[in-house]
C-alpha cells in the first residue's frame, strides 16, 4: 500500500514564529485542475500589526549589525535556498509553472540572494560622499536604512518577485513585512522556512498571506511603517497606498519590473529604502599651516 503523504500546513511568519492567523480565516488554493493544493491563512490587519511590532523590535539590532555580518546572513539564505531547491520547484509547478521555468526561477532566486549578499558591505561606498564644505568642518553623508518597510509582493510571481524585493531591503539594514502573492502564495511561506534557518534574526522579515485588497490600506496607513514597496500595476491600489502614505510621510516605491531579468537587480533598489544622513564636525586647525596660539 502506498504511503499516505504528510501534507504541509501553510502558516504565517511573524517575529520568527509560524503562527496561524489570529483571525482563524483561510482561503483554499486550487491548482489548474481545481484540485485543492492547500489552505492558506487569510492574514488580518491584526496579523499585520503584530508583524510591525516584531519588525520594529528587530530593526535596531539588524541595522546595527556589521555589513559583513548582514552579507554572510544573506549568503546563508542563498545556501539554504540552494539546498531546498527541489521543494520550491515542486511548489512552483503546483502553482502552474513548467519544470524548466521553475528550475530557472529557483536558481535565479538563489543567485539574486548571492548578488545582494555581495552588496551589503559595498553599496554604502557607492552612495556615500565626503563633502568638501567651505568651512573648517569634516562633512560626510552615508546611507542609513529607512526602517520598517511594508512590501506588497508581485501577484504574478511566487518566489523570484518576493526574493528580488526583500533582498535589497534587508541588505540595506531595513526590516520588512511582506504580503505574498495572493494567487501564488506557496513559495513565500516555504521561503520563510528558509529564512528561519538562515541565522536571520526573528522579525527582520515577516511574511503574511492573504488578500491584497483587504490588507493594503492597513499596510499603507500604519503609523510605524516608514516605507511601502508595491509591486504591481493596479492604479487604484497604487493611489490608495500613496494617499494613505501621506499620514506619516511614508516613502512609496512602485516596482513594475520583470524580475526574471538581470536588469532587475541593481544597488539602486537598495538605495530606495535608504535615507542619507549627513554629519558635520569641526576640524581643528592648530599646527603647521594653521592657526597658532
Amino acid at each position: 500500500m502506498a504511503r499516505i503523504e504528510i501534507l504541509k500546513t501553510y502558516k504565517l511568519y511573524i517575529g520568527g514564529q509560524f503562527p496561524r492567523t489570529e483571525s482563524g480565516r483561510y482561503y483554499t488554493l486550487l491548482d489548474k485542475k481545481n484540485k485543492v493544493i492547500a489552505d492558506i491563512c487569510l492574514g488580518s490587519r491584526k496579523d499585520f500589526r503584530n508583524a510591525v511590532v516584531a519588525a520594529r523590535a528587530a530593526f535596531g539590532a539588524w541595522s546595527g549589525r556589521t555589513a559583513y555580518n548582514r552579507a554572510q546572513i544573506l549568503y546563508r539564505i542563498a545556501e539554504m535556498l540552494e539546498t531546498r531547491k527541489a521543494q520550491f520547484i515542486v511548489e512552483l509547478i503546483q502553482q502552474g509553472s513548467t519544470k524548466i521555468n521553475a528550475e530557472k526561477e529557483v536558481a535565479l532566486a538563489v543567485d539574486r540572494l548571492v548578488y545582494y549578499a555581495g552588496w551589503c558591505d559595498k553599496f554604502q561606498q557607492i552612495f556615500s560622499s565626503v563633502n568638501p564644505v567651505a568651512s573648517s568642518h569634516f562633512n560626510f553623508s552615508v546611507p542609513e536604512p529607512t526602517g520598517v518597510v511594508a512590501v506588497v509582493a508581485p501577484q504574478d510571481s511566487s518566489l523570484i518577485g518576493l526574493v528580488s524585493i526583500i533582498a535589497p531591503i534587508i541588505a540595506g539594514g531595513n526590516v520588512c513585512i511582506a504580503l505574498a502573492s495572493e494567487k501564488m502564495p506557496l513559495c513565500s511561506i516555504t521561503f520563510a522556512e528558509v529564512l528561519a534557518t538562515s541565522d536571520l534574526a526573528a522579525g527582520v522579515v515577516n511574511i503574511l498571506t492573504g488578500k491584497t485588497s483587504e490588507l493594503i490600506s492597513h499596510m499603507s496607513s500604519h503609523m510605524d511603517v516608514n516605507a511601502v514597496v508595491y509591486a504591481g500595476k493596479d492604479q487604484k491600489e497604487i493611489l490608495l497606498i500613496k494617499e494613505n502614505a501621506t499620514l506619516n510621510v511614508k516613502r512609496v516605491f512602485v516596482y513594475q519590473n520583470d524580475w526574471n531579468k538581470t536588469e532587475s537587480q541593481n544597488p539602486y533598489f537598495i538605495f530606495d529604502a535608504q535615507e542619507i544622513k549627513t554629519t558635520w564636525h569641526p576640524i581643528e586647525s592648530i599646527g603647521v599651516g594653521g592657526a597658532k596660539y
Partner: peptide
C-alpha cells in the same frame, strides 16, 4: 543632518 560640536551649518556640497 547631524551637527556634532557645531550647529546650523549649511553648504552647497552638503546634502
Amino acid at each position: 543632518v547631524i551637527w556634532a560640536n557645531t550647529y546650523n551649518k549649511f553648504d552647497p556640497t552638503s546634502p
